[in-house]
């Protein structure tokens, strides 16, 4: 009975949303808000105001940089909440299947994975990828080392310090932009040419900081989820 009611409600919602989407006219890109983001990058190539080759990075960090700061803050709040709720959970999850092969393999693979993550977030303004993806790769490395038998147990304070430091430097760069150019997160470094590694000013710096912050944040979150002493 209850399932039938749920089915009817979700079907009604589906039909409603379907009609809503059908009635919405599909706009061309030139009529949208983000066409200005694309145009300003490309057409005025002599004095482009923002020179990162990846347009998504340009939206995330340059046009909507303040929103990204808020997003990282939300992630910090979620990690704090997980640490708060898991604080009194004493017993640890133990993995019996971490054999010799798994441990050795994790030790061999993990430096390569961390290098891949750092590569992804250094080249975030040129190729697909960036701080969020690279940070997640680093967090997956932490997960692998944990599954291989607790090789990262004493690194929690390191993660916490890195996370706080990179968040503070993000705000500090924003304040420097306020002092130099008169706007928070103003791009005060030289812009360079599109497609070079050292281009687009503060964008790669902030993406590296976001990569470190997201990586340490999610690593801490995974280690908190596994429980144990949260010293």
């Amino acid at each position: 009975m209850k399932k039938l009611l749920a089915l009817i409600i979700s079907l009604a919602l589906f039909i409603f949303l379907f009609q809503l989407v059908m009635e919405t006219p599909s706009k061309l890109l030139s009529e949208r808000v983000s066409s200005r983001y694309v145009q300003k990058n490309v057409l005025s190539s002599g004095e482009a105001e923002e020179t990162s080759a990846n347009l998504v990075t340009s939206v995330v960090l340059s046009y909507r940089g303040l929103d990204t700061l808020g997003e990282v803050t939300v992630l910090f709040a979620a990690a704090t909440g997980v640490a708060f709720f898991m604080k009194n959970v004493k017993e640890r999850l133990n993995f019996l299947f971490s054999s010799f092969i798994v441990q050795t393999g994790a030790r061999v693979v993990s430096p390569l994975l961390v290098t891949l993550g750092i590569y992804i977030f250094i080249h975030g303004h040129l190729t697909p990828g960036g701080g969020f993806q690279g940070g997640t790769t680093i967090a997956i490395t932490t997960l692998l080392l944990y599954v291989a038998g607790g090789l990262v147990e004493r690194k929690r304070t390191v993660f916490r310090t890195l996370e706080g430091l990179s968040g503070s430097v993000y705000v500090l760069i924003g304040l420097m932009g306020l002092a130099v150019g008169g706007a928070f997160l103003y791009n005060f470094l030289p812009l360079g040419k599109i497609g070079e590694l050292f281009s687009s000013g503060i964008v790669p710096v902030i993406y590296v900081l976001i990569g470190i912050k997201v990586g340490s944040e999610l690593s801490n979150l995974v280690l908190h989820t596994t429980g144990g002493d949260n010293s």
Partner: peptide, 26 residues
């Protein structure tokens, strides 16, 4: 190009999603 603005929004939404899911599981 395809519209980069929704992609940027979804990129941050996915990363927030893992945080909130971990909070819910805690």
């Amino acid at each position: 190009p395809v519209d980069p603005l929704p992609q940027a929004l979804v990129l941050t939404a996915i990363v927030i999603g893992v945080g909130t899911t971990a909070l819910m599981s805690a």
